[in-house]
């Protein structure tokens, strides 16, 4: 008996048919379908507003939620306004030198044979609580950065570094355990194929509580 009832999704088309149309006939004789049709018409009508309605607040709330969903899991608006922290050339050189020295001491030849994204390992053990997953390129060209969640973390902050370890951008991922960088924003980070580095900080109350080791990625 249930199989006779068309899905609610088809009601818009069915109700446009002439009442005598055999495809619509069931709607007239089935109590369940008649009730659903009444409910659907009520959804479409611009009848009186129910008591307690606050249309302006609802409109505002729904638009904001929808826009946040459409823009993606994080507002990436900050990306083009990245702040190079090491603006003076000597600072960049000094930082790069320090990292290189650490690498020379700590990175074994075995590790060097492995993938690029372990090249920067060797950070202090306390920083290794956040584990990054390999960066992925999505079918639409977006770059997806993911990491294992850290228990207790309220939010995460992702920092992207250029080839000379200059900071390119710092973006909040909110509470999400991933950051999707739309294809359109990638050009701001450098030419396609550039090797970049990224790192994630876990935050509680806005303060960092854990820092991942940096990993490399190739800009799609």
């Amino acid at each position: 008996m249930k199989s006779d009832c068309p899905p609610v999704e088809s009601f818009e088309r069915l109700l446009r048919l002439h009442p005598a149309d055999p495809r619509r006939e069931h709607l007239g004789r089935c109590p369940r379908c008649r009730a659903r049709a009444i409910a659907f018409r009520s959804f479409l009508e611009s009848g009186p507003l129910p008591q307690g309605a606050n249309l302006a607040a609802a409109r505002d709330g729904m638009t904001k939620t929808l826009q946040a969903e459409i823009r993606g899991p994080v507002a990436f608006a900050r990306l083009p306004r990245w702040r190079p922290r090491l603006s003076r050339p000597w600072a960049a050189v000094a930082f790069s030198g320090a990292i290189a020295a650490v690498l020379l001491v700590l990175v074994s030849p075995t590790l060097l044979k492995q993938r690029d994204d372990v090249l920067l390992r060797g950070a202090p053990a306390t920083q290794a609580q956040l584990v990054l997953l390999p960066a992925e390129t999505l079918p639409d060209g977006a770059l997806l950065l993911r990491w294992h969640p850290l228990p207790g973390a309220e939010s995460y902050r992702v920092t992207l570094f250029g080839q000379n370890l200059e900071e390119l951008a710092q973006v909040s991922a909110g509470a999400a355990e991933f950051l999707e960088i739309p294809a359109g924003n990638l050009a701001a980070l450098g030419p396609r194929g550039s090797a970049l580095f990224w790192r994630v900080e876990a935050l509680v109350g806005g303060d960092p509580v854990a820092l991942s080791t940096p990993a490399s990625l190739s800009l799609p």
């Binding site: 009520s42 959804f43 479409l44 507003l49 129910p50 307690g52 309605a53 249309l55 609802a58 409109r59 729904m62 638009t63 929808l66 826009q67 459409i70 823009r71 079918p139 639409d140 060209g141 977006a142 739309p182 294809a183 359109g184 924003n185």
Partner: peptide
């Protein structure tokens, strides 16, 4: 599939958002 897309989806869903809210209410 396009970066920065979503305008059409936004217009389409915002067209119905009040009805959805009123129905839920």
């Amino acid at each position: 599939r396009e970066p920065g897309g979503g305008r059409a989806a936004s217009v389409l869903l915002e067209r119905y958002q009040e009805r959805v809210y009123v129905w839920c209410l």
